[in-house]
């Protein structure tokens, strides 16, 4: 099973996070339509992998979204859309969906994140029917037409679109990056800048 359980530091034990990575997804239109119709069975964060730098980058977005959920301060319908919005460096929600969300006709490589959290506040929607790791995975493999891959930095690196990432995270012409010659180091620094941009969202 390629659905990985992510254990993030400083999250309540009752809060479970699962993630999977699919390459060459052919039914982005269908998945996108499920989100638009607010189909309760498709409560996932569908993230376009081409604008994700690394695992840590993704984990940062998840962490920040779950924190918002715990505070009861969601600004989007649920924690999954909040993950997509967390990837942005500004507060434009539509922009975030367009850049990091699943886009029909464009998204080929897809990261799927599922957060199973105990219903905390009254504003929570009724708990979704699928809860266990196996059930989530079965549901995903049934509906996502793509090749499951492990969610590793190496796999993500194959899907990344650098010009896009540089634009989204304002990495062009940054002195801290330009003086770095080593490619690996540069990648690390880009990741840091992206995470920093997300942390400072809207400031």
């Amino acid at each position: 099973m390629a659905l990985e359980r992510l254990d993030l530091e400083h999250l309540p034990a009752a809060c479970q996070v699962y993630a999977a990575f699919f390459r060459d997804v052919s039914n982005a239109e269908f998945l996108h339509a499920q989100l638009l119709s607010r189909n309760g069975e498709f409560e996932y964060a569908f993230i376009d992998a081409s604008s994700v730098i690394s695992r840590l980058h993704l984990l940062s977005a998840i962490y920040s979204a779950v924190n918002v959920l715990l505070d009861g301060a969601l600004r989007t319908p649920n924690v999954h859309s909040e993950i997509v919005v967390s990837l942005n460096t500004n507060n434009n929600i539509a922009d975030a969906y367009r850049r990091w969300g699943i886009t029909p006709g464009k998204t080929k490589d897809l990261i799927v994140v599922k957060v199973v959290a105990p219903p905390s506040g009254a504003q929570e929607e009724p708990p979704t029917p699928i809860q266990t790791q196996q059930a989530i995975w079965d549901h995903l493999t049934q509906h996502v037409q793509g090749i499951p891959k492990p969610l590793t930095d190496a796999e993500l690196a194959r899907a990344i679109d650098w010009p896009k990432v540089r634009k989204y995270y304002r990495l062009n012409g940054v002195p801290a990056l330009e003086r770095v010659a080593d490619e690996q180091e540069r990648w690390r620094q880009s990741e840091r800048l992206a995470i920093m941009g997300m942390a400072l969202r809207g400031l």
Binding site: Y63, N67, A176, R192, G197
Partner: peptide, 18 residues
Amino acid sequence: LERCWREGVPVPAVYAMD
């Protein structure tokens, strides 16, 4: 911190905040 870090001044990077 972000401003300094972008400019290459040796400071700690920001990871997350609330």
